[in-house]
Simulated scan of single mutants.
Amino acid sequence: METLHVDLAGRSYPIWIGPGLLEDHARWRALVRGRHVLVVSNTTVAPLYLDRVAKGLDGLHWSSFLLDDGETHKTFANVGKVLEALGALGATRDACVVALGGGVVGDLAGFAAACWMRGIDFIQMPTTLLAMVDSSVGGKTGVNLPVGKNLAGAFHQPRAVVADIDLLHSLPQREYRAGLAEVVKGAAIGDPAFFAWLETHADALAARETAPLIEAIARKCAYKAGVVSRDETEQGERALLNLGHTFGHAIETAGNYSDLLHGEAVAVGMVLAARLSERLGLSAAEDTARLIALLHRLGLPTETSRQYPASQLIELMRLDKKNSAGTLRLILWRGIGKAEIVSGVAEEAVLEVLGAG
């Protein structure tokens, strides 16, 4: 098992990575301060794993709330329902929300925890690779709006992240591969040695071999934990973690969150960011080629199967949270492991990359 820590001003929390962690009740139960616990999960995950968590809640006053599965259910309406469930439970200020699921469950449950009595504890128990390596770490919570992804939310750090890799055995192949996109992203942003390691171990990771999988999760989480520790509320460096996200979120929104999985959209978005970097003279063609080759080996898309109007995508990109003063502010790179924030990107160049030029 690997143990990492996210160290913030005046507080710290662990990330536990390894097998059998849901059943390691003594480890995570010790973080529950009060007697009220609400487990938020979904209709796919709960039948598989809720019983394992329930055994660790014996003696507490707890209940569960289940979402329907899918990104389209990450809404304000469902946050309201979680808050109503907390009310029905009689949850007090020392209550705890347990997020048992993927990124949708973690984001929404964390946001509800941030809202209840202006903030109560929550524990992340990610059940997808994507959530283990990305959304469960760092305290970003929120919901989608019709005009864009994650536009409403709060920074609310968990008490712990419990990443039980045994849960990945039941993960569908497409969901597993989508998580690998976030692993690649971490390496592409700031760790060229990790990127080379991924190229060497791509086949083993695609086959879900345990040792390289634990190492990949730990290296990605360690990188993100360091960034979050230095820039918790995304005033600077943390924005780099959004490489490919401005393009990817626009594609997800255009597809009504039902065309591509989040990780797939990030993979496509990273390629578009690399191509834009190349077009602007920031990076070389061989860097783009290495990225595309690695994504292909991991079974990830590098372009959309559906064509969206470039004008629609650029309009959605204007709503990205990183933008300021009405200009596009994108995360681009100067090659593998050298991402940077680029302000004032000309829309004409973006439209050309999107295929409109």
Rank of each mutant, 00 (worst) to 15 (best):
V82K: 03
A91C: 14
L100Q: 01
L100E: 01
K81L: 15
V105C: 02
T92M: 10
L86M: 13
V104M: 07
V98M: 13
L86K: 05
H73A: 02
A88N: 12
G70D: 04
L89G: 05
G70P: 05
E84R: 13
A85R: 12
G90Y: 02
R93H: 10
A91V: 09
V97W: 01
R93K: 14
G101T: 10
A88H: 14
V98L: 15
G103V: 12
A88E: 12
A85E: 08
G87Q: 14
G87C: 12
N78T: 05
A85F: 02
E71V: 10
F76T: 14
A88Y: 13
T75Q: 04
V79Q: 13
G90S: 09
L83Y: 08
A77E: 15
A88K: 15
E84N: 10
V105S: 00
V104G: 03
F76P: 07
L100G: 00
E84I: 09
G103A: 05
E71Y: 01
T75Y: 02
V82C: 08
G102F: 08
V98C: 08
A91P: 11
V104A: 02
A77P: 05
G80V: 03
L100H: 00
L86Y: 02
V105D: 00
L89R: 02
K81C: 11
V79T: 12
G70A: 04
N78F: 02
V97H: 02
A88P: 03
V98K: 01
L86T: 02
A88T: 09
H73S: 12
L86G: 04
G70E: 04
D94A: 11
C96V: 12
E71F: 02
T75G: 05
L89N: 04
V105I: 13
V97F: 03
G80D: 11
T72I: 14
F76L: 14
G87E: 14
A91N: 10
L83K: 05
V82E: 06
T72M: 13
K81D: 14
V82M: 12
A91H: 09
K81Y: 07
K74W: 01
V104W: 01
F76A: 11
A85Y: 01
G80S: 10
V98T: 00
